[in-house]
Simulated assay, not measured.
Amino acid sequence: MASLSFVSSSHHLTLRTPPLTLRKTSSPRTSVSFSVKAQSVALSQDDLKKLAAEKAVEAIKPGMVLGLGTGSTAAFAVDQIGKLLASGQLHDIVGIPTSKRTEEQARSLGIPLVALDTHPRIDLAIDGADEVDPNLDLVKGRGGALLREKMVEAVAEKFIVVADDTKLVKGLGGSGLAMPVEVVQFCWKFNLIRLRDLFKEFGCDAKLRVGGDGEAYVTDNSNYIIDLYFKEPLKDGFAAGREIGKLEGVVEHGLFLGMATSVIIAGKNGVEVMSK
């Protein structure tokens, strides 16, 4: 079994100047930012999420195939795409939704939709994240759409993540909130125990996700989700992901590693664009 360990490190959010450039390289991440002009009334968290989502949508060009994310922040981006299509400022695009919820939202806005079956190459995906570390690696899936999100975003040429500054962590798992693993329903308790034991030496807790009705939460693909809770952040997310993926009955995990090309972070003082 690969060696798994944890670490903490410092992270500082900086604010600077505009445009969003997207490229896939192995070079260290850089930051550029734009500031929110002084307001007589402070912007709410939703206002900032919306501002960041609209910044991400600026990267969309006519003719693109788009991955449409899931969650409260991604929903602002989908709304903006719909508005631009309706006004004629954007045209000749199609979207691939990452959940049934996003599909319903996109259809209500008149966004043309296709599937990976017919459009296996995606130009740009825009989605939120539950955690973002200094290397732009992510935890996603607390909204329950991790499998479809990963399928779509893994084949995107460019992947912009939009989040608020509460999602910044020093290391993945560092928020103490859920890191989801999607599993088949068959013998789910067996896999819950195996997942818990895999990280036992690090004090990991594992729980079956339940819905508001108290019943097991069922994903769009008819699977269950086991949420892992770490007391300290992961040092080696890649090793953790490999070990989780070896377990029979595990469908997908919420570690999105090396996938984001840019992350747009909305904070109280403005919006920062971090790119690789």
Rank of each mutant, 00 (worst) to 15 (best):
D227H: 04
I126A: 11
T70Y: 02
R16Y: 11
L85V: 06
P62W: 03
P97D: 07
I264W: 01
R194L: 15
I226M: 04
T73I: 06
G141V: 00
A260N: 07
M1Y: 10
V57W: 07
L124D: 00
A86V: 05
M1S: 14
K167L: 03
E54F: 08
L195I: 11
E104I: 15
V94I: 15
I93A: 11
L147S: 07
N135W: 04
I160W: 02
V41L: 01
I226A: 02
I193G: 10
A115V: 13
E104L: 14
G95H: 01
A77K: 01
D130H: 01
S5F: 07
G71F: 02
M1P: 14
D205T: 15
L257W: 03
L113A: 01
V78W: 00
L51E: 12
D92C: 07
E232W: 10
H119R: 13
K83Q: 15
F159M: 09
G267R: 09
L234D: 02
I93Y: 05
V57H: 10
N135H: 13
A52D: 08
F76D: 02
V273W: 00
V161D: 10
V271D: 01
V162W: 06
A52S: 12
D127M: 02
S275L: 03
D197E: 15
P180W: 08
Q45N: 14
K150Y: 06
D197V: 11
S222D: 12
G258T: 06
T166K: 14
A266R: 00
F76S: 08
R194I: 12
G258E: 01
V210D: 04
Q45E: 15
I111Y: 00
C204D: 06
V152E: 04
T25Q: 06
D127G: 00
L124V: 04
K231S: 15
L68Q: 01
F190V: 10
D133Y: 04
R121Q: 13
S44N: 06
Y229S: 05
D220G: 03
L192E: 12
K268N: 13
L255E: 00
L136T: 05
K276C: 11
L146V: 03
M151Q: 09
E153V: 08
I81H: 05
H253A: 06
V57Y: 09
K150Q: 03
